[in-house]
Computed example of a mutant assay.
Amino acid sequence: MLSTNARGFAQAAFGPAARLLVRLGVSPDTVTVTGTVLSSTAALTLLPTGHLTAGALVLGVLVLFDNLDGQMARLTGTESRWGAFLDSTMDRLADAAVFSGVAVWALRYLDGALGNLTAGLALVCLVLGGVVPYAKARAESLGMTADVGLAERADRLLVVLVAVLLVGLGLPAAVLTVALALLALASAYTVLQRMRTVHTQSRPGGAA
């Protein structure tokens, strides 16, 4: 899983920006919502119109900047359940925009079965990308944990954006199709892992 390493890099790279925004009086919630609006706009305008290279690069930068709101909340001592809820909800919207943009691109630019397959896999990834964090959140709401799985959010976004970039740079569209298929399998496996973990904990004597 890449989430921990990516978070550490983002903290080191964008710490100065977080401190600057705090000094300017910008709130973490403002950064959260603004980042989602920018990411969704980029995904739904650049990708469906065939600007894959630009889309992947812009979205990659915005994904890294997604760490800013958390850093700002820690710097100002304003971490809260509301902030965590808002951040998670906005993440789901941004992720949906990315995979929807890929699906629309596939239907517009790829012919026949390949276009339909790629778009279908993008939608499968979209759905499973919502189920993965839901399974963890639901487990925690029941007093259990589900901190297992291959496909965390950072991993899912890295895979799809790298594949989009490679296709934008001239590789065959099938590269993106294969990447989406692997991502769908990894996401489905993650859901099953979390279900199994929670099932074990829910048994009498199961460890939380």
Rank of each mutant, 00 (worst) to 15 (best):
G77S: 08
D95G: 09
L182H: 03
L38R: 03
V63H: 09
G83S: 14
L182C: 14
A139K: 01
D95W: 01
V31G: 13
G25L: 06
V148A: 14
L52T: 13
G70L: 10
L171R: 11
A139D: 02
T118S: 12
L62C: 14
L107T: 10
A173N: 14
M72Y: 04
A119W: 04
V132S: 11
V61M: 15
A84G: 10
L2D: 08
S27R: 12
A13V: 15
R92F: 03
E152H: 06
A6Y: 13
A54S: 09
R92G: 11
A122M: 01
L52K: 12
A184E: 03
V132Y: 05
L182K: 04
A18G: 14
L192E: 03
V98E: 07
C125R: 04
Q71Y: 02
G168N: 04
A17I: 15
S141A: 15
V131D: 06
D66W: 03
L86T: 00
T4C: 01
L114M: 10
A43V: 14
V160S: 10
L192H: 12
A17C: 12
T49G: 00
S27Y: 00
P133I: 02
L57C: 13
L62A: 15
S39W: 01
A163P: 07
Q11D: 09
D66H: 05
D91T: 10
L185T: 09
D69C: 10
G83I: 13
G101V: 02
L121P: 02
L157P: 09
T197G: 08
D29K: 05
L68R: 07
V148C: 12
Y189N: 09
V26P: 06
L180Y: 06
V160W: 00
G35A: 11
G8S: 08
M144T: 13
A43F: 04
